[in-house]
Design a binder for these strands. Structure first.
Lengths: 193, 193
DNA sequence: GTAGAATCGGAGAGATCCCTCCGGTTGCCG
DNA sequence: CGGCAACCGGAGGGATCTCTCCGATTCTAC
């Protein structure tokens, strides 16, 4: 969705190949090195001159967004798909754990979710709003079903998610297991205590 | 401990004042802006030329360490002081919560604890080893007393701490309350379930 | 095969950032 | 109050990063 060069002629074959390669390399670089990686470095790893990469992506941010936004949108899509699931509690916790699991292996994705460093995923952005709304809907249904504590707000869950990402990512980096997500999910449940 | 200019003559009065002011400004800048702040920017905020600041601190890292290491050492000292407390569980959880509470208001302190970006607090450093050792001792005592799950290792607790820092810091930034530390502490307790 | 358009490559402008160097200024001691 | 050691200030070197520009190269349509 959103092929914004629909009126333009299709890319030349070699340009298309190169564009694909840049995306591939950028994806790997971002996953392993995070958002601090330089544009020049990505061009170098891909084996292109910087001019070539800039031809395809007008800005450093544009390249990063082309790589990262798709993944974010998939999280949103997952949440929406689960919004009508039978078991709201199961849907909420399952989604939460999936996001932590999938994002924690990707350095740049974690940083994007944690801080406000990517312009396209900031407070007030459409994507950020969609993410929050989708999360909020899952949360609300789970709360109505009595599976999640009623005093939790959407922002609270977002912050808990960020915390889980930090913990799981570090644990993964040293080859250990922390299961921060499990502990936090337990904490979010309605406790009968 | 470690006043390495004991043989040198004392600083001139104006130099001493300026040094103090630099530390003060750097402390504020690091707390609010984190480790990415530039040396030039700190000099500018303090109202000095960069040469003046470099006279007192030979390197950017040296300045940062002068500001941050004291706080870290206090956490270690706190842990050591609690190592002989009556109630090991109470000591462990109290220390954990204190660290989260005090560090989460300081951007640079969080980043230092989370990543390995400050040379003086890396794997293999004395300070990092002291921190881990002090934490480990608190943990072990709490586990022997049956207050904390036995399968938790020191590194696990460190990662959980990092996660709490991320969550609490973000919550604090938006004026909300998350109590991530509470949830995680609950999760670390031996559950009778 | 060839003309012409699309694409590539990388030098370099402009902005920072860390740090050095040294002339001008200031505080301290007798 | 005079002399000098200590200190201040900021210009600028060297490195790195984002992004631009245009000659050289490559692809494609005929």
């Amino acid at each position: 969705m959103g092929d914004d060069h629909s009126t333009a002629r299709p890319l030349r074959a070699d340009a298309r190949r190169n564009r694909e390669r840049v995306l591939q390399i950028a994806q790997e670089a971002l996953a392993s090195d995070g958002l601090t990686i330089s544009f020049d470095e990505i061009a170098r790893r891909a084996g292109f001159g910087v001019g070539t990469v800039y031809r395809h992506f007008p800005t450093r941010e544009a390249l990063f967004e082309a790589v990262l936004l798709g993944r974010m949108e998939r999280f949103v899509a997952d949440a929406r798909a689960l919004a009508t699931a039978e078991d709201p509690g199961r849907a909420f916790f399952g989604w939460f754990r999936t996001v932590v699991e999938q994002a924690s292996v990707n350095q740049a994705l974690c940083e994007m979710l944690e801080g406000g460093t990517v312009p396209a995923f900031r407070r007030g952005t459409t994507l950020e709003a969609d993410f929050a709304a989708a999360l909020g809907r899952l949360l609300q249904r789970a709360q109505r079903a009595g599976a999640v504590r009623g005093d939790l707000r959407t922002e609270d869950v977002q912050d808990l998610l960020r915390g889980c990402l930090t913990a799981e990512r570090r644990a993964r980096a040293r080859g250990g297991k922390v299961a921060m997500a499990e502990v936090v999910c337990d904490g979010m449940r309605s406790h009968p205590r």
